[in-house]
């Protein structure tokens, strides 16, 4: 942007680059890290909670 000074120019291009970074990151990792199970010991927490609700 020719009419911007250095500081505003920097902000403008960093804004564009950070958006590109978000798009590229999302695009490249779109199907990665889809595993839902974190730990077997806490897998039943929702059921436990439902049991508490029922008890109440």
């Amino acid at each position: 942007m020719g009419s911007f000074d250095f500081g505003v120019n920097l902000a403008f291009w960093l804004m564009i680059l950070s958006t590109v970074l978000c798009v590229a990151y999302g695009w490249l990792n779109w199907n990665k890290d889809g595993e839902k199970q974190i730990d077997g010991s806490v897998a039943n927490w929702a059921k436990e909670e439902d049991a508490i609700e029922e008890e109440l």
Binding site: T19, L21, C22, G26, W27, N29, W30, N31, D33, K36
Partner: peptide, 19 residues
């Protein structure tokens, strides 16, 4: 969200939305 994959996808959508 249920996994990191959803967060990865949300980065793309969120970045463009905030712009």
């Amino acid at each position: 969200v249920s996994s990191k994959r959803e967060l990865n996808r949300a980065v793309l959508i969120g970045g463009v939305f905030i712009l």
